[in-house]
Design a protein around this nucleic acid. Structure first.
Lengths: 159, 159
DNA sequence: ACTGAATAACAATTCAAA
DNA sequence: TTTGAATTGTTATTCAGT
């Protein structure tokens, strides 16, 4: 039971903003896990979840991984600004030109940011290819990367 | 005042295990920042610090960055096992042989893990150099990398 | 071993003040 | 805008039961 419940907790906090343990307990009860706040508290300790302020100044429970994704997105944003010269779509690929030697680093950052629809990357010296799931998804990914590059250091969404 | 205090908070929680906000307020008072738990609570929200379970089942306040370092160390461990063929010390460098094309990725992972005494990396195709601060520190870094490669997925320390 | 009810411990907020 | 005192809200733990 505990196993399944903790898996469900992970799913819940990743898909909705849970501000308190009572709220999480209620969400679990709505899904037929009959638990109290006490149990939720113990699960949170075991799963090493954290309660963290959101950009809007409220709180939410989060996994360490999702925080990792935010940091990865933040890093990628920096690299896009500092190392990337240009972005070109071509079929289901995006070709990215970087400063000499930086392609591998940028590729690694893209991989870690786990952007939606990005299947993987291959890097040369100053060029890398990001392989996108479908031709149709390319535009969205391209826009996302371009937006990250310009963004005012504000919110980053880890989808 | 707030600026300096928050910088100090960061330093404190990175160097000692702080379990409660009262404890943190006390640590600040010991350093001539006269604050109460209420202020600490507000600082924690602004700095987006989190309270997280430690491996030993207790709690501690932590920065998102320190969690990021743990994740980076974890990633590096995986790459060391999967992509790295060998490690050779030479003067104040460590030369690392990787599978073809993986050097850049491994270099990026080493950079992000922010290992002690590692100043930076340069990557070719299947070889990279990690530049160590001093000749004398090379042995320690080498041992650390070798240990990571063998480690049973257990603890990773982000020094 | 796992859990809930009750409670203790802790954290966030309100309100007033500077 | 920032803060502390008091308060309220939330979370961790104890203790008993399964």
């Amino acid at each position: 039971m505990k196993q399944r419940r903790q898996a469900k907790i992970k799913a819940i906090i990743e898909s909705e903003i849970i501000e308190t343990q009572d709220e999480l307990a209620a969400a679990l009860r709505a899904r037929d896990f009959d638990v109290t706040q006490a149990t939720v508290s113990r699960d949170i300790r075991e799963m090493k979840l954290v309660k963290m302020a959101t950009a809007e100044g409220r709180y939410r429970y989060a996994t360490p991984e999702s925080q990792g994704l935010n940091l990865a997105a933040h890093r990628l944003q920096g690299l896009l600004r500092d190392m990337v010269i240009s972005l070109f779509p071509s079929e289901n690929l995006i070709l990215i030109k970087t400063l000499p030697g930086a392609a591998g680093v940028v590729a690694a950052a893209i991989d870690q940011a786990k952007l939606k629809d990005v299947m993987g990357t291959v890097a040369g010296h100053d060029t890398l290819l990001a392989v996108i799931k479908t031709k149709t998804a390319v535009a969205a990914v391209l826009t996302k990367l371009e937006n990250m590059r310009e963004m005012n250091d504000a919110e980053q969404k880890a989808e």
